[in-house]
Design a protein around this nucleic acid. Structure first.
Lengths: 333, 333
DNA sequence: GAGAGAATTCGAAGCGCTTCGATACCGTGC
DNA sequence: GCACGGTATCGAAGCGCTTCGAATTCTCTC
């Protein structure tokens, strides 16, 4: 492995000059710069990460804490992760993966100066990691919005706005009997701030038009969707507009509507919130508000980088939802 | 941040003594060790990762290259990743995430001494990364088995054995007309060594009993499963035993069998190969050979660590399949 | 009780890089 | 021709740790 000293010798300059060429922190004359760059190329020189970290007190690594507990929506997780890694690379940073959802892991990585910043995914309303994150001596960005955001940097989809948007879409099409098929009961109860925010957005928007919404929790499976839909058609046959916030159940719901003689969109209008590329794989495509996992990951990195430059106050960034129509909303029969 | 010097002062010993207490590379007397350990605890000392890496030429980091291209089975990917990270931590290593499936990324991470070893997932038969991996100056472990394994360390499920096991299970139950619903046509064609190995295992085992197998490629969707099954029942109504190697289509297949009046297992015996926790979520549970993602990830780490100790020759480790019965195989009607 | 040998601990060099102050060199203006 | 302000480059210190050889202390043995 070539060292910076080898480069300096090859280019006939001092060690520090090479360093300044690489970092750009001091002006270097055109000819010298070129000689150095040529030497770097010819020796295939890459600075030793550890040495850089030691001398500069910067590791150029972001730690990313990913949830691996069962029942999590892996597709969206992967999208976040991909977004974070891609964005990190554009800032010349790498990503270190943490999985144990253990406060100590965060502290360890910080104390060892393994990472300059931390991004934590899937933050719950009352997340046990919050105190540590607040006390951390380096930037932390949360994906998800806890109950108390003071002193924290958070980013997420604006689920309330998504709920309002989905509902408004149905109401604008003329629907007056609307239901929300949401997350599982257990998710509503335990954590899942986003499920609650989403529901509140739906309910609020409906209330503005003087409407009530039937809210049905739903198991995150194909069968769960079919079952809940069957129940809905029995209990509330007058419902003509459906907001679905349950990815895994969506196919089951759509297929069950077909079988029940209430096909989308003539028999039932449907708007879904889901990750990208799900809506298109269905028998009948569905108007979708996609969770922009890639964008959220990127924004999280940007926030972390900004805070690395200059520490800022707490801040919550909610990404506005976008609805992609697929012809699944029609006026009620 | 406390340094090793602070610890030394607090414990009244020299710097190197502290280092030896931590690494255990030289004997330290009981009393001194205790004083040092106490100081470490009280100062909450964690060694600076960069300094350690610089001085010891070991970063204690494993680079993990994860595929993020669309159409990949995210569930199994996540299981691998979780297995790798968990195992790495037991070896006191962290995991650095690489996503760009770019040979240069591997070289960069190696040249910068960011990682001691590399684990590459989802290796194709003729993977473009193979030359670089062979030439790498540090251990590389592949998850997946390429065409030419010379000089490489590989680990994967023994898909051929899985195919044989699934088929034998059906044959032992008395089935003589067997079909394999496999990966998508595109997967068979392009990469996906595992799909081919699996198919060959099925065909070989059937041939031993003088049977032929109908092989049907299948889109990895619920609808894809339903559609292929419908076609199967039309073209080959005599088939009574099914091997399914297509996770996403499995639910569609099982449900379609139900609707066609050929419920599992009385109307059709089914054995599936899939990730854990899929088989149980079905309307009718299905005998499953689960891909032990967690184990494979762990083995990959173990192989990398072993090669870090002492470089060895190329080696391919195939994990034996296990079948978990769920009552989906019965004698033919 | 002295010397040999083993058991511990210490000191210093060095890993490869960044960064600060200092030096060398340039053209200007008077 | 000389002091001056810039600009481009150099040198050396230091980041926090590991590791090797040397020094010290302890334990026996005769």
């Amino acid at each position: 492995m070539a060292t910076i000293g080898d480069v300096a010798r090859a280019a006939g300059v001092s060690l520090s000059t090479v360093s300044y060429v690489i970092s750009g922190k001091r002006p270097i004359s055109q000819p010298t710069r070129e000689r150095v760059e040529r030497a770097i190329r010819e020796l295939a020189f890459h600075p030793h990460a550890g040495a850089q970290a030691l001398a500069s007190a910067r590791s150029n690594v972001i730690a990313l804490m990913v949830p691996f507990r069962p029942g999590i929506n892996v597709a969206i997780i992967m999208e976040f992760v991909a977004g974070v890694v891609t964005a990190a690379r554009t800032f010349d940073h790498d990503v270190l993966l943490l999985t144990e959802e253990d406060v100590q892991e965060i502290d360890r990585v910080a104390a060892r100066s393994l990472a300059d910043a931390v991004i934590v995914m899937d933050v719950e309303s009352e997340d046990p990691r919050l105190p540590s994150l607040r006390a951390l001596d380096r930037p932390a960005v949360l994906i998800g919005v806890p109950e108390d955001t003071s002193g924290l940097a958070c980013v997420d989809l604006d689920f309330a706005a998504a709920g309002r948007l989905a509902t408004r879409t149905l109401i604008d099409a003329g629907h007056t009997h609307i239901a929300l098929i949401g997350a599982s009961r257990e998710r509503f109860a335990r954590r899942a701030n986003y499920a609650v925010r989403m529901r509140d957005g739906v309910v609020e928007q409906a209330a503005r038009s003087g409407l009530e919404v039937h809210v049905l929790p739903c198991d995150p499976t194909y069968a769960g969707g079919s079952d809940v839909l069957a129940r809905l058609l029995t209990d509330h046959p007058d419902v003509t507009g459906l907001v679905v916030h349950n990815e895994a159940a969506l196919a089951g719901i759509v297929d069950a509507l077909d079988r029940a003689g209430r096909p989308v969109p003539s028999g039932m209008s449907v708007v879904a919130i889901n990750v990208a590329n799900i809506a298109e794989g269905l028998r009948r495509p569905v108007d979708s508000i996609t969770v922009p996992g890639h964008d959220i990951g990127r924004i999280a990195v940007q926030m972390a980088m900004a805070r690395l430059e200059q520490d800022g106050p707490g801040e919550t960034r909610l990404v506005a939802p976008t609805l992609t129509p697929h012809g699944s909303v029609a006026p009620p029969a």
